[in-house]
Design a protein around this nucleic acid. Sequence first.
DNA 1: GAAGAACTGGACGATGTCGTCCAGTTCTGC
DNA 2: GCAGAACTGGACGACATCGTCCAGTTCTTC
Lengths: 204, 204
Amino acid sequence: MVGMATEPTTERGRATRGRIVRAAAGLIAERGVAGMSLDDVCLQAPASKSQLYHYFSGRDELQQAVAEATCEAVMAGQATLLDDFGTLEGAERYLGAIVALQQQRQARGGCPIGSLAGQLAEHHEGSRRALVDGFDRWEAALRTGLEAMAERGVLRPGTDVASLAAQILGAIQGGLLLTQVRRDPGQMRQAADAALVLLRGATA
Amino acid sequence: MVGMATEPTTERGRATRGRIVRAAAGLIAERGVAGMSLDDVCLQAPASKSQLYHYFSGRDELQQAVAEATCEAVMAGQATLLDDFGTLEGAERYLGAIVALQQQRQARGGCPIGSLAGQLAEHHEGSRRALVDGFDRWEAALRTGLEAMAERGVLRPGTDVASLAAQILGAIQGGLLLTQVRRDPGQMRQAADAALVLLRGATA
DNA sequence: GAAGAACTGGACGATGTCGTCCAGTTCTGC
DNA sequence: GCAGAACTGGACGACATCGTCCAGTTCTTC
């Protein structure tokens, strides 16, 4: 934990760093943060201990990198769906897609960001900040869609789109958490309905 | 992990088991599931290894006991507030109390049940079931309040109180998660407002 | 193509953790 | 008050994990 982490400057270095982060992310998703050992990460990457410690100062920094990569992946995965969020129908499609994904995954895993939050947020400031950043980007995308609706007069004038975006994100996260714990995608369906109630409650 | 767990039959045994669970719960709250070692639990309880393994088959069973105790504590802590949930004003008081608690705690810790969910639900079936039980009891309490409102004609006839209860619980959990990650009690305020919107949307 | 920086591989010691074991003490039922 | 069950204390071995170290290889720059 003495040496500082190094950014890779060569193509090979970037590839190695990427393999390590992906392996760590996979192991965390599979076994949880507690179940991920650095040796396992090296084995799975594949990479060696010195490579891991070359790019990361230690476990904490690796976990933070996983948090960042996870946020990136989640946002990238729903980017096109979120672009649609500027209309009521688009919002319905977006929320329906989340429900469908939960059904397809048999209600496992919950939200990748939310799951990490429960495991990291309270105990590692760097990881927490990475997750805050992820939620901020998510919420900003929702807000952008709401603003588009507001501009077209779909929402009542004076609607607090910032709050509404936060509430919708909260409903989604709560729904995903209950879905995961109860192993029931119906929980996400109800949460999606709740988000739509909040949205429709603000329509003109 | 070979021996099965034993229920204590004597007063002293129950006290010891209780000390162990409380110590484990405290350490998990402080450092997370990953950061709790059984040696630390014994040190803090105080108790000895053989006592721990006398009452629990191993780490997993101890964690499950912590999950059960946490659910119990959370429900006991809000029992009187939840009794109030049978009126609109009572519901406002209840949600306001959650917000106030988050402010008082400086947005730390989130929901004890929800936090455990993120760390345990995906990886230990027994713990998951304990958490499901906690959420079920919570939701049932909300539903009881909603049914009281429905009977008194506060809610529109035909309101699906079961779904509404799940949605309100989801809003609360989502709000607590965002509060914890963002370290901002305002997140819980917005979630509480969202829950009230859902509730008022069902009033006659 | 040579020099130096970046990267790689894997062995290694220190440490923490788990789970076992057994001898000693306290409690319970008769 | 005694026999047996329940409980307690702490030492112990096996093992996993962390983080370090250094020699060897590949890349970049000139």
